[in-house]
Design a protein around this nucleic acid. Structure first.
Length: 92
DNA sequence: CATGTGATTGTTTCC
DNA sequence: GGAAACAATCACATG
């Protein structure tokens, strides 16, 4: 059972405040790719873009996606803060 | 202490 | 507005 399956199978709520998580390197990468991919593939369908995106994502060199991971790191800290308040008010 | 678990994040296009 | 492909994540909770 891969967690991946469950994710798609069902995603229910959890905490009342749900400090959410942080973004993923993919999110930052996609931000740039959405411009590029769609720009290079004018008029392609969702199924193609979505897939094409992922393929290229990994296609890049680890160092190339580094800038995205870097952002992911910063975003993570953002979540840390959210959780901090959430936990705080929760404790209270 | 070690493990996995689940929830989440954002994009694209489409009706 | 929601749905799936695409990937990462990773802090949280638990035994």
């Amino acid at each position: 059972m891969s967690t991946t399956e469950k994710k798609r199978a069902s995603r229910k709520k959890k905490d009342p405040d749900a400090p959410k998580r942080s973004l993923s390197a993919y999110m930052f990468f996609a931000n740039e790719n959405r411009d590029i991919v769609r720009a290079e593939n004018p008029g392609i369908s969702f199924g193609q873009v979505g897939k094409l995106l992922g393929e290229k994502w990994k296609a890049m060199s680890s160092e190339d996606k580094t800038p995205y991971e870097t952002k992911a790191e910063a975003d993570k800290k953002r979540y840390e803060k959210e959780k901090a308040e959430y936990a705080k008010k929760n404790s209270a």
